[in-house]
């Protein structure tokens, strides 16, 4: 029997200045089809939708969930209508507004296209300002460049099940963003014993000391909820670039800024003095296992 409550929540996915990376990342979600079937998709730029772009930009009906991908540019138009108008129109009646990715959350990569005017929906980097600041209580930021498919999947499922979704100061769900992306990295033991990677392309060593890894300073669960259910940047030897934080993209991403060969930025919450004490002690030991190769292939040639 279909009662009124069975009506599927309506969803619009709309884009600002973007590379489409959040769309394509989300498409990797396992069980995507079942999740999407629980919504009526009024509009998505790549998926079959019940309304077309002309109807959407005409702003004549409302939606329950409004997802915005990309940086907000106040001068940008879609179909000759200012994105700011469209955004404000749907934000007014939506129950939830989801900023998909770092661009929509904080400005991100394409803030640099016009730094003086571009921003996220309710944050301009870490400053609490943006085009729909008056609806901020409804905004959930799922930062990440791109968005992690499972983080958005989780958020949509929370919304569907009407569970309360607690967020941090930057409006990110605490269940996703309380971890640091450092948590769960396969190199954690090297971090503890202060053994750095000599170089890129190695299984061994931690990337915090030389290669620029930002994971200890970055709120994200990339090493807990793996990418594509398979891996993560740091697991394949790429430093974390801190793409979930409001200051992404930083510069000189493949090297660590150091002061007297100590990383300039400390892991979140760790006082420099404590770090130095611990590092000083750890460095006095020489642990063969950690200094050698993890796997020693017997070379026959």
């Amino acid at each position: 029997m279909h009662s009124k409550q069975d009506k599927k929540p309506t969803l619009i996915w709309f884009q600002g200045l973007t590379c489409n990376g959040n769309t394509h990342s989300f498409f990797n979600l396992h069980n995507l089809e079942n999740l999407l079937n629980k919504f009526e998709i009024l509009y998505h730029p790549s998926l079959e939708s019940t309304k077309n772009i002309d109807e959407i930009t005409a702003c004549i009906f409302t939606c329950d969930i409004f997802i915005f991908e990309g940086t907000y540019d106040p001068l940008m138009k879609r179909n000759d209508v200012l994105v700011s108008e469209i955004l404000n129109y749907y934000a007014k009646d939506a129950n939830y507004i989801i900023a998909a990715g770092t661009c929509a959350s904080f400005g991100g990569m394409f803030k640099a296209s016009a730094p003086e005017r571009n921003s996220g929906l309710i944050f301009n980097e870490a400053d609490h300002e943006g085009p729909i600041i008056k609806y901020k209580h409804k905004v959930i930021n799922i930062s990440g460049c791109p968005i992690h498919p499972e983080w958005l999947g989780y958020t949509l499922n929370m919304v569907l099940s009407k569970k309360e979704l607690e967020v941090d100061k930057l409006h990110r769900p605490i269940e996703l963003f309380s971890n640091l992306s450092h948590h769960g990295c396969t190199r954690n033991e090297y971090f503890e014993w202060k053994v750095d990677s000599d170089n890129f392309g190695e299984k061994e060593g931690c990337l915090y000391y030389k290669q620029g890894c930002r994971a200890p300073m970055t709120h994200a669960s990339c090493n807990k909820i793996l990418w594509n259910e398979v891996s993560s940047k740091t697991r394949v030897g790429t430093p974390c670039f801190g793409c979930t934080e409001a200051d992404f993209p930083r510069q000189s991403l493949y090297s660590t800024k150091t002061n007297m060969s100590i990383p300039q930025d400390m892991p979140i919450g760790v006082p420099k003095r404590s770090y130095l004490t611990l590092a000083g002690i750890a460095k006095t030991f020489s642990i063969k296992r950690l200094e050698g190769k993890l796997i020693d292939y017997k070379k026959t040639h």
Binding site: L29, G201, N228, V230, S232, G237, T238
Partner: peptide
């Protein structure tokens, strides 16, 4: 998504991996 997993096996993630560097790749 299966192709993306195959990429992530070496590149850590897809989209937006940065695992190629002048001189090689970051994974081992």
């Amino acid at each position: 998504s299966i192709a993306a997993r195959a990429i992530a096996t070496f590149a850590g993630q897809w989209p937006h991996s940065s695992y190629m560097l002048p001189g090689g790749i970051t994974c081992d």
